[in-house]
């Protein structure tokens, strides 16, 4: 193991948690691309986490929580002031409270305020600094792993003249992006797909709808780039293109639509 390998292994766990800075993250990615040993170690650590999650998140170990739910409900009920407890016996009032609470929970859903900003940021940090690459299916298979393995297989090699050149996992600012890069007439376009774990997409101008009508496509202009976004139940999808060479609607809708179909299948599993 080289000194480089030792340093990279110190960073591997934070890399897997998407907690590295953009620069360090890309240093690790570049090393993993070249070093079989460290890539193997990264895969084994990823597998360790998967098995640990599987073991600890096995609901069979927990069994029925119905009795506990009832016990907690009774404890909360007993904790209320007596007058309030009497009033709560009247079901219309209880129903109204439930309605208000569910409304409050709906409105309290967090909004992923930096969703557009981070997509544009990663386009600049990764795609624009990317070495010129020709499409290489084996390379993509090696670098686009985990839940997004196979995404490149469902995407067309060409959408309205936009040519697929590369795809990889691309952690950025704590996000687990799958990053697919297209090129058209010398301009690079990024597709980012990520699990929607930070909240809903922020409000933006609606510029279209996915061809199957399942989701609106919204867009924002940021720092000279246009970020188009669409959401599925558990994922956010972004297409980032240069403001001076905005991606055609046909290509954008094709890319977003194929990706949405792919992530919906993941969500059904």
């Amino acid at each position: 193991m080289t000194r480089d390998c030792q340093q990279i292994r110190e960073l591997l766990d934070s890399f897997l948690s998407s907690e590295l800075t953009v620069e360090t993250n890309h240093t690790v990615l570049r090393h993993l691309e070249l070093c079989d040993e460290c890539r193997g170690e990264a895969d084994r650590r990823r597998e360790t986490r998967r098995l640990l999650s599987a073991a600890l998140k096995d609901d069979a170990n927990i069994g029925d929580v119905g009795a506990l739910r009832a016990r907690i409900g009774a404890a909360i009920d007993a904790d209320q002031p007596r007058g309030w407890r009497r009033a709560a016996r009247y079901w219309p009032l209880a129903a109204a409270i439930a309605l208000v609470l569910s409304g409050a929970m709906w409105w309290s859903r967090p909004v992923d305020a930096a969703a557009f900003e981070d997509s544009a940021g990663n386009h600049v940090a990764c795609a624009l600094g990317y070495p010129p690459a020709a499409y290489d299916a084996a390379r993509i298979k090696k670098l686009l792993t985990g839940r997004f393995a196979g995404l490149a297989d469902v995407l067309a090699r060409d959408y309205d003249g936009y040519e697929l050149i590369d795809a990889h996992l691309c952690p950025y600012n704590g996000r687990d992006y799958a990053h697919v890069i297209y090129r058209h007439d010398g301009h690079l376009v990024s597709l980012f797909a990520e699990p929607a774990v930070r909240g809903t997409l922020p409000r933006a101008e609606q510029v279209g709808t996915l061809p199957d009508g399942s989701s609106p496509v919204t867009a924002k202009s940021l720092h000279g780039f246009v970020v188009d976004a669409a959401g599925t139940r558990q994922h956010h999808l972004f297409v980032v293109s240069d403001e001076q060479a905005t991606i055609s609607n046909k290509a954008r809708d094709g890319i977003l639509s194929s990706t949405a179909q792919f992530v919906r299948k993941l969500e059904e599993q």
Binding site: R9, E41, R44, R45, T48, L51, A55
Partner: peptide, 18 residues
């Protein structure tokens, strides 16, 4: 010392180790 992760891993092994 930080040992490499073993090649062969099972849920039982990870659970017991954890």
């Amino acid at each position: 010392f930080d040992p490499p992760t073993p090649d062969v891993l099972t849920t039982e092994m990870v659970n017991a180790a954890f």
